[in-house]
Computed example of a mutant assay.
Amino acid sequence: MIDLLATHYNYLMFVALVGLGLYGVTASSNLVKKIIGLNIFQVGIFLFIVTSGYIDGGSPPVVHGHGAETYVSPLPHVLILTAIVVGVSLTAVALALVVRIYEAYGTLDEDTIREVRLND
């Protein structure tokens, strides 16, 4: 079991990052902390997808007389590049919404905002 964790530490890091991100999203009532937790969660997913596409001894899929028998698929890396762009855009929109919420309610606490909206 120890040897398995020593060789596949990336999966352990994946579980730790996803757990930490999920905890940040669910446990905090501060909206900025929720966005940070969402970003940590995304990084864990990115790590999992990139490392699951790794093949030991594989070579790049360039076929100019290379002669390798095992090639590494570039698809996971391309998907992660796209996901990073989407994640940055999502973070920018979320932070812009947080700024507008703070201007409207004067707080970033989710419970306080809910109380103010219920009393209106």
Rank of each mutant, 00 (worst) to 15 (best):
V116A: 11
V78E: 13
A16M: 14
L12F: 09
E103Y: 02
Y9C: 04
D56R: 13
M13E: 06
A92F: 13
S73H: 03
G37M: 01
V98L: 10
I84N: 03
H66D: 11
M1Q: 07
K33C: 09
V63W: 11
S29L: 13
D56M: 12
T26S: 15
D3S: 06
L31G: 03
R100N: 09
D56A: 13
G106M: 06
I80C: 05
V18F: 13
A6M: 09
L108S: 06
T7R: 13
G37E: 00
S29E: 11
V25Q: 14
V85L: 14
L17P: 01
V32T: 12
A96K: 15
S28C: 14
G65N: 09
I45W: 04
G87W: 04
V85E: 04
V62D: 08
G53L: 12
S29Y: 11
S73K: 00
V18Y: 04
F48M: 11
G37Y: 00
D111L: 15
L22Q: 14
I101L: 13
V99F: 05
I36N: 04
I36K: 01
I40D: 00
T7N: 11
T70E: 07
L97E: 11
G58C: 08
P61V: 05
N10I: 00
P76F: 01
S89V: 07
V88W: 04
V116C: 08
L75S: 08
S28M: 13
H66K: 14
L5T: 03
G37L: 00
K34P: 02
L75Y: 07
L17Y: 03
V50L: 13
L12A: 10
T26D: 09
T51L: 15
I84C: 01
L81I: 12
G21N: 05
T70F: 09
Y23M: 11
I45E: 03
A68P: 04
L17N: 04
L31V: 01
Y105W: 05
T70K: 06
T82E: 00
V25C: 15
V86K: 09
V43D: 00
Y102I: 07
S52Q: 15
F14W: 06
L5V: 04
A96P: 08
H8M: 11
N119F: 08
I36V: 11
L79F: 05
S28P: 04
K34H: 04
H77S: 07
G37D: 02
T91H: 02
V72Y: 10
H77K: 02
D109M: 07
V15C: 13
I49Q: 02
R114G: 05
N30G: 10
A96H: 15
I101V: 11
I35Y: 05
Y11K: 08
N30C: 09
G58W: 02
L17A: 10
L12P: 02
V15N: 10
